[in-house]
Simulated assay, not measured.
Amino acid sequence: MNEDPTRRRLGRGLAALIGEIDRPSSAAPGSEQVVREDRRVPIEFISPNPRNPRRNFAEEDLADLSNSIREHGIVQPVVVRPAAADGRYEIIAGERRWRAAQRAGLTEVPVIVRDVDDRVALELAIIENVQRSDLNPVEEAAGYQQLMEEHNYTQADLGQVIGKSRSHVANTLRLLKLPQSVRDMIIDGSLTAGHARTLVNAADPEKLARRIIEEGLSVRQAEALASEPDAQEGAPRVKREKDADTRSLEKLLSDHIGLKVQINHKEKGGELRVGYKTLEQLDELCRLLQR
């Protein structure tokens, strides 16, 4: 099969843009990507891209950036493309900066204008966000899926364009097979992408996801749990293996207070359990804690 000449041109065009997406530069003679000069544009003339793969903007991050912009202005211009003949623009990269600038009360923002089509605009948005780790894994997967559906990309094509391995693309796309409830856990950070991928073929991924979070299981333990035939039927909970440091700390605390101490690590934080057999032991523990 002959290589698609559009893809060959695309690779060279993106090579000139990746890493310089929000810095003005001059287009090389014969280049397909026309880069216009840096300028300032009224903020109301700029609109977000409805196809932007990034959907989540943390309120705390926006507030912090807004305060910084109010104090120092926008350091990196917003990358846009012409949206209409009336001087309006659509964001390619920098929507978070644009949102924060509105909160900061700016009336205009610095922009760099690039003449690119829908396909390249989407690619640049994905690349810019991936390089800055701004996309959560679900948003990244949705962006890949969009390129595949709308522009007939293969997983190998995507890997080449975004600078990731084909296996990374394939594993990321698998997350879209999970129910929305599990994807929400990935988006809010309570479940990692590595844990979530072990649940793709599970009969009840949401139930297993909650067990993984509650018990603070490792990815290997999650794989073992998901592979159990009776995992959905109230199988015994997976016993978390404790490292030598944790066991040593448990012994140190137990020897010090004279009671059995258990330390259980979870995905976020953990718990410390102290067991007692009599009320006298409980009273002694309370006295120790009060001291």
Rank of each mutant, 00 (worst) to 15 (best):
M1A: 14
R8G: 08
G11Y: 10
R12E: 13
R12S: 11
A16T: 09
L17Y: 07
E20L: 05
D22P: 00
R23E: 10
P24W: 03
S26N: 12
G30F: 05
Q33R: 08
V34H: 05
V35W: 03
V35D: 02
I43H: 09
S47P: 00
N49V: 00
N49H: 02
N49A: 05
R51S: 04
F57A: 07
F57P: 04
D61L: 15
D61R: 12
L62M: 06
D64S: 13
S68M: 11
S68G: 10
I69E: 08
R81L: 12
Y89Q: 13
I91F: 04
I91Y: 10
I92K: 03
I92E: 01
W98K: 11
Q102R: 15
Q102Y: 00
Q102K: 13
Q102T: 07
E108A: 06
V109L: 01
V111Y: 03
V113Q: 02
V116S: 06
A121R: 04
L122I: 01
E123P: 01
I127R: 01
V130N: 06
V130C: 02
Q131P: 05
S133C: 01
E139P: 08
A142D: 13
E149M: 10
E150C: 03
H151I: 07
Y153H: 15
Y153K: 14
D157Y: 08
G159C: 11
I162Y: 09
S167H: 06
V169C: 05
N171H: 09
T172F: 02
L173M: 09
R174P: 05
R174A: 14
K177G: 08
L178T: 00
M185A: 02
I186E: 03
S190W: 01
S190G: 00
G194W: 02
H195I: 04
H195W: 04
A196I: 06
D204C: 02
E206H: 00
L208K: 08
R210T: 05
I212Q: 01
I213F: 03
G216K: 01
V219H: 04
Q221H: 06
E223D: 11
E223F: 10
E223Y: 06
A224E: 14
P229T: 12
E233C: 11
A235E: 08
A235N: 04
P236A: 09
R237W: 11
V238D: 03
V238A: 08
K239P: 08
K239I: 07
K239N: 10
E241Q: 14
A244G: 04
A244Q: 14
D245R: 11
D245L: 13
D245P: 01
L249M: 15
E250V: 10
E250C: 09
K251C: 05
L252W: 05
L253I: 15
I263H: 13
H265R: 13
K268Y: 14
G269P: 01
E271D: 14
R273Y: 06
R273C: 13
R273K: 14
V274F: 12
V274E: 07
T278E: 09
T278S: 14
L279A: 08
Q281F: 07
E284N: 15
Q290M: 15
R291G: 13
